[in-house]
């Protein structure tokens, strides 16, 4: 188990390191950052002075190392637009996105896994069709349209839920459903196919032949196996959500990370963009690690050599 953990941890560090290079280079290679920051109509002298102040005149590798050093000290730099430390800006925006992402993935999991199991238990029947239909509906409708529909029904017509802002838990219900619904088809389909396989596997036949109750066979001996790829998928989907859904955050006026990223790109707020990219990469890598560890707990063949 320890060797398994160490190996996965090293992989995670490697992934974050590589993405940090990519993130850094992307920002610096997509145009002259000094010109962008100085703004339109700035004189060449102004641009030069910005370049000096922010160290953009140094070679890229040197800039990268300097930046990384600061990051390790917890200093992500300052937002030149918001005139605040990047750490502070992120601390203001991240909780909203984390709350939204966690609620959205919880909604997606609670909807799609039972549907996937049900569809696999009654394959090619009406139950299966309905379950697939319900889950795949999430993919057919663009997320902004679905969000607007939710707002129209629950916020405007029924007036039971708030439709914008982040003042209370109730504010997160609609956006979490809108965002989470988008993740249901993939999770549901993977659960369904995994369950179909698992239900036909030899050890499930053994469990049945030894008189174990049907629900125990389904949950203990089939679902557990079906969950292995699903866990990894959920981690990826949650990573995507933590990257912030610009569309959902905009529609529901949630000032989260997605919204911040979008605005910062428009403002050429480079320090903020870099920090967001790095954090998203780290979140992805950590979630993948968490999924691997969870899978190790599910299937001993992964952890016990």
């Amino acid at each position: 188990m320890l060797r398994f953990l160490v190996r996965r941890l090293l992989m995670t560090v490697l992934v974050v390191a590589v993405t940090s290079v990519v993130a850094f280079s992307l920002v610096h290679l997509s145009g002259d950052p000094a010109a962008a920051m100085a703004g339109e109509g700035a004189s060449p002298a102004d641009v030069e002075s910005v370049r000096k102040t922010y160290g953009f005149d140094r070679p890229l590798p040197e800039q990268y190392v300097t930046w990384l050093k600061r990051v390790f000290e917890g200093d992500f730099g300052r937002s030149h637009y918001l005139r605040a430390s990047v750490a502070q800006v992120l601390a203001d925006h991240a909780p909203i996105t984390i709350t939204l992402g966690a609620l959205a993935i919880a909604f997606a999991v609670l909807l799609s896994i039972p549907l996937g199991v049900l569809a696999a238990l009654y394959p090619n029947t009406l139950v299966d069709r309905l379950a697939v239909g319900l889950a795949v509906g999430g993919q057919a409708v663009p997320s902004f349209l679905f969000a607007l529909l939710l707002i129209y029904i629950f916020g405007v017509t029924l007036r039971v839920l708030p439709i914008s802002g982040s003042g209370s838990w109730a504010h997160f219900v609609l956006p979490a459903i809108a965002l989470g619904y988008y993740a249901t088809p993939a999770i549901m389909r993977l659960t369904r196919s995994g369950m179909l396989d698992a239900l036909q596997s030899d050890h499930v036949r053994t469990a049945r032949a030894y008189g174990l109750p049907a629900w125990r066979v389904i949950i203990k001996h089939a679902l557990r196996h079906a969950m292995i790829p699903v866990v990894s998928l959920i981690a990826v989907q949650l990573g995507f959500m933590l990257g912030g859904s610009i569309v959902i955050e905009t529609v529901f006026a949630l000032k989260g990370v997605g919204y911040l990223a979008w605005q910062s790109i428009q403002r050429s707020d480079i320090e903020v963009i870099q920090a967001i990219l790095l954090l998203i990469a780290a979140a992805y890598a950590l979630l993948t690690l968490a999924a691997d560890v969870l899978n190790g707990a599910i299937d001993p063949r992964i952890r016990v050599g």
Binding site: D202, H203, T206, A207, A209, H221, H225, D299
Partner: peptide
């Protein structure tokens, strides 16, 4: 309980988890 089965493939007939 009254009828028990020993299957062909012992590699797969036990639950690996």
């Amino acid at each position: 309980r009254r009828i028990a089965v020993v299957f062909q493939d012992p590699m797969t007939s036990l639950d690996p988890c």
